[in-house]
Design a protein around this nucleic acid. Structure first.
Lengths: 248, 248
DNA sequence: AAAGAAGCTTGACCCTTGTCAAAGCGGAAT
DNA sequence: ATTCCGCTTTGACAAGGGTCAAGCTTCTTT
């Protein structure tokens, strides 16, 4: 069990160490020259330790950040300290898009494990976009995709019951991990029950209870942060119906 | 009372008839030549009657649409027919940004009253953006603003109680109306209780009850769709604390 | 190695909100 | 003007999820 845990961790590190930004985050047809220009703009990657802030809400916005390796959460805080986790990000995903509108970061970004990011200075990306139309277009698509993702979260928070939310969450994680070459049915949660709850609009006790319920039904096994999906189809059945009408 | 209703309706129509797209939706410094280019791209405005669809989820995406006059809702539907209203839009606001990522519209856009929109063919706006950097930048900002808005909705849906949600909703409407030159404390709701509920993640009965409660407390008066804010500060007190820490 | 802190699970209870139902009202259509 | 239908309000009741509390495990720190 603990071996399994180690194994998965290890696999993640190894596989991510050779994932390039260009492949995952900017998968667009660029010629050799354009590649060179892009490389010149993307700053050396930065490493963060678990728990470290990449940026904080209120800080000046200068750059977007792409996850190279590791795992992040983004969250917004209310004045009285309530936290809403707005996303969990893995390799190839982009953080900081909300800062463009006001030149100030609108959320916190925190590494949930030792991680590495690429910095994309926004001004320079913007002007590069004018020279490379496909890059500009790709950026619009990335921002649009974030809007679509947010809409799906709204659907989840506004319409779904606790079991449905958790099922949707686990299947989403599973799908994204498998896209990156990891096992779809055997993974380690990088976040706490409380963080899952914050993301899903539930209390940590409800997350815990619902996971236990899934386990009792034989749909998955839970060993602390180690999740094994046993009957992913049962989870899919649970949320068929309450997901977006156009399988987006 | 009914007079008041008519009056507000009238005011909205009149004031909107002389709001230009450039002023509200694209308030950027363009020179005369750039203005001309932009005008050439923005298609003649289109009129819609109450209840008419501007576009539907799944249709091919070609253009963004800016509200010139009137009022819209956007919503996503799940397979089993649950509806999540993702936004209510008034003059100067933009619809369709979620379609960029997949070239397919991801939500429905429906006029809640007789309305008028400008069509912005996205391809042409994109290439115009390459010629006019400030236009390109403005577009990035618009998309980012939408992401920020969505994050605030997540905060609302994930953390706030029914009373807080409704207070936040009313104050947001009030603020946006007053930005457009309308009375901040006396307005007509263009949407049904059910649509408000869908947006706020509540059932229509809860919306109705909560409005009644606010009225009993003397914070506002409700006459069907006619709302008068009497103690807006009381509503603000209710949500102080649960709004974004950086008054975004 | 020990101790403390943090995170997780589980139970009991309660509150907010959803569900179901009935009745009132207003607007649209004839 | 009348009728009908949709929207809204309100009540009674149910239930899902929140709250509080206790105990346990694991990880961190010294």
């Amino acid at each position: 069990m603990s071996d399994q845990h180690q194994h998965t961790l290890h696999a993640l590190k190894v596989s991510c160490s050779n994932c390039s930004l260009r492949e995952l985050c900017l998968p667009i047809g660029l010629n050799r020259d354009e590649m060179t220009q892009l490389d010149a703009v993307i700053r050396q990657s930065r490493r963060l330790k678990r728990g470290e802030y990449l940026f904080r809400s209120g800080e000046a916005f200068k750059s977007l950040f792409a996850v190279r390796t590791g795992f992040f959460k983004t969250s917004v805080a209310s004045q009285d300290g309530r936290e809403q986790v707005t996303g969990f990000l893995m390799s190839g995903e982009l953080m900081g898009l909300d800062g463009i509108s006001s030149n100030v970061h609108g959320c916190d970004a925190i590494a949930l494990e030792d991680s590495e990011v690429c910095e994309l200075p926004f001004n320079r990306m913007e002007s590069l976009g004018r020279d490379i139309p496909s890059l500009q277009h790709h950026f619009f698509r990335l921002m649009s995709r974030e809007i679509v993702r947010d809409q799906n979260v709204m659907l989840l928070l506004g319409n779904m019951k606790a079991e449905e939310r958790l099922a949707a969450f686990l299947l989403n994680l599973s799908q994204r991990l498998s896209t990156r070459g990891f096992a779809a049915n055997d993974f380690i949660l990088r976040m706490s029950r409380e963080e899952i709850g914050s993301f899903l609009g539930l209390k940590l006790e409800t997350v815990s209870r619902t996971l236990s319920k899934f386990q009792q039904q034989g749909w998955l096994s839970v060993d602390h942060k180690h999740i094994q999906l046993i009957k992913a189809d049962a989870l899919k059945d649970l949320i068929s119906g309450c997901t977006h009408a156009n399988g987006v």
